[in-house]
C-alpha cells in the first residue's frame, strides 16, 4: 500500500461517516418532536454534508482518477462504503438518535481536536473547521442525554434502551489498521488510544450524571470500515443514489 492509497482510505472513511450520518439526521426533517429540534438536527446534517464534500473531494484528488465528491457519494456500491456501522443504523426514536449523536460527536470532538495537528494541511484545515461544528453537536447531545436521563421515567427507560442497543457499535470508531499505522508514522493520522480514553471518561461521566447505567457488554461489532455493513446501508444507497443511477447521463 502506498501512502496515497492509505490517505485515500483515511479520507474516504471520514467522508463516508459524515455522509451517512448526515443522511440519517436529515431524515428527521419534519419528523422531530418540536420545531426547534427539527432545525437543530437538520442543521447538524448540513454541517456533515459540508464535511463530506470536503473529505470526499480530497479523497478524489488523492486517488488521482478524476473523481468528484458526487462521483464517490453517488456511484459506489455497498461494499465500497467505509463508514462505521453506528452511522447507518436506522434513527429509531428520538432517544436512539440522541444517544447515537452523543457517542459519535464525543468521539469526533476528541478525534478532530487531534487531527488539527496532522502533517497533512488539508486534513488539518478540515479538522479546524469541523471542530467548531462538532463542539455544538456534542453540547447539544449532552444536554439531551441529561434531559432524557433525568426527565421522566419513560424518557429514562427509552434513553437507557438506546444506550444499551448502541453500545456494541461504539468500539468500531477507535479501530485502526495498516493504513492508519502508515499515516501515523508520518504524523498524518490520529493516534487512537488517547482518543478512546478521553471518550470513555467523558461518556461515563455524562451517563452517570444522567442516571443512565453504563453497559457492561464488551463485545463490539465491526466491519463497516472494511465495507461489510448492516443490511440498512443498501437501503440508504438505493434511496440516496436513485436519480444518479436512473439517469446516468444527466447532470443536476
Amino acid at each position: 500500500m502506498t501512502t496515497e492509497q492509505a490517505l485515500y482510505k483515511y479520507c474516504l472513511r471520514l467522508g463516508d461517516n459524515a455522509l451517512i450520518q448526515s443522511y440519517r439526521l436529515s431524515e428527521w426533517c419534519s419528523n422531530a418532536p418540536l420545531l426547534e429540534e427539527d432545525l437543530a438536527l437538520t442543521n447538524f446534517a448540513l454541517d456533515m454534508i459540508g464535511r463530506a464534500q470536503l473529505l470526499l473531494s480530497y479523497a478524489g484528488v488523492v486517488e488521482g482518477m478524476g473523481k468528484t465528491d458526487d462521483d464517490l457519494a453517488y456511484r459506489r456500491g455497498e461494499r465500497q462504503f467505509t463508514n462505521t456501522l453506528i452511522s447507518e443504523l436506522p434513527n429509531g426514536d428520538f432517544a436512539f438518535t440522541i444517544a447515537r449523536l452523543f457517542f459519535t460527536s464525543v468521539y469526533e470532538y476528541y478525534f478532530f481536536t487531534e487531527l488539527q495537528n496532522s502533517a497533512d494541511t488539508t486534513l488539518k484545515a478540515v479538522a479546524a473547521k469541523t471542530l467548531k461544528e462538532v463542539k455544538y453537536h456534542k453540547a447539544h447531545a449532552t444536554d439531551w442525554m441529561l434531559r432524557l436521563g433525568g426527565g421522566t421515567e419513560e424518557s429514562n427507560t427509552r434513553v437507557q434502551a438506546a444506550v444499551n442497543a448502541l453500545w456494541m457499535y461504539t468500539g468500531e470508531q477507535f479501530e485502526t489498521d495498516k493504513a492508519d499505522a502508515m499515516l501515523q508514522d508520518i504524523n498524518i493520522a490520529v493516534d487512537m488510544p488517547p482518543v478512546k480514553d478521553k471518550w470513555n471518561v467523558y461518556v461515563q461521566e455524562v451517563l452517570l450524571d444522567a442516571g443512565i447505567s453504563v453497559p457492561v457488554a464488551d463485545y463490539m461489532q465491526t466491519g463497516g470500515r472494511n465495507g461489510v455493513h448492516t443490511e440498512y446501508l443498501g437501503h440508504i444507497l438505493s434511496e440516496m443514489q436513485y436519480l444518479q443511477r436512473a439517469y446516468p447521463d444527466a447532470t443536476w
Binding site: 443522511y23 436529515s26 426533517c29 464534500q53 458526487d70 457519494a73 453517488y74 434511496e239 440516496m240 436519480l243
Partner: peptide, 8 residues
C-alpha cells in the same frame, strides 16, 4: 431530501 441528486 434523501433523494436529492447531488451533495450540493
Amino acid at each position: 431530501i434523501t433523494r436529492a441528486p447531488s451533495l450540493r
